[in-house]
Nucleic acid binder design. Structure first.
Length: 142
DNA sequence: GCCGGAACGA
DNA sequence: TCGTTCCGGC
């Protein structure tokens, strides 16, 4: 049976919950908890179990590399109930982030993008602590 | 692979 | 508004 594409889409890793409600909701959409792609990317980057699929780039602050584009697309498609998702489409969504200054491309490096934490978490989400190594530590409830 | 316009849906 | 799908161009 295909449970998982019904209603709620929270990580079911067994206590592997990372992001609180503020990460799932949008200001203009009350009640709507459509997860955004960059939230999902951040979610994967936090977990060691996905470091063979997507991981932070050492040395570069906020930069990450997608080691397995097909797998990331598959996981994203599963979360959004879009079985036909692929890296080509996913990367298009990523490209829309350029103008929004959420992400930008690290040119020359394959499957490599970089978060604009400068403008992303600093002003809007001061609950997140990013270490110089690139690791993210959510500080919730304290 | 990566870019970005266009149509379209929720 | 945030993608999803499709696609011509580089």
């Amino acid at each position: 049976m295909k449970a998982g594409c019904s209603m709620v889409e929270k990580p079911e890793g067994g206590g592997g919950y990372q992001f609180p409600d503020w990460a799932y909701k949008t200001e203009s959409s009350p009640g709507s908890r459509q997860i955004q792609l960059w939230h999902f990317i951040l979610e994967l980057l936090q977990k060691e179990e996905f470091r063979h699929v997507i991981a932070w780039q050492q040395g570069e602050y906020g930069e990450f590399v997608i080691k397995d584009p097909d797998e990331v697309a598959r996981l994203w498609g599963r979360r959004k109930c879009k079985p036909q998702m692929n890296y080509d489409k996913l990367s298009r969504a990523l490209r829309y982030y350029y103008n929004k200054r959420i992400l930008h491309k690290t040119k020359g490096k394959r499957f490599t993008y970089k978060f604009n934490f400068n403008k992303l978490v600093m002003p809007n989400y001061p609950f997140i602590n990013i270490r110089s190594s690139g690791k993210i530590t959510p500080l919730v409830g304290n």
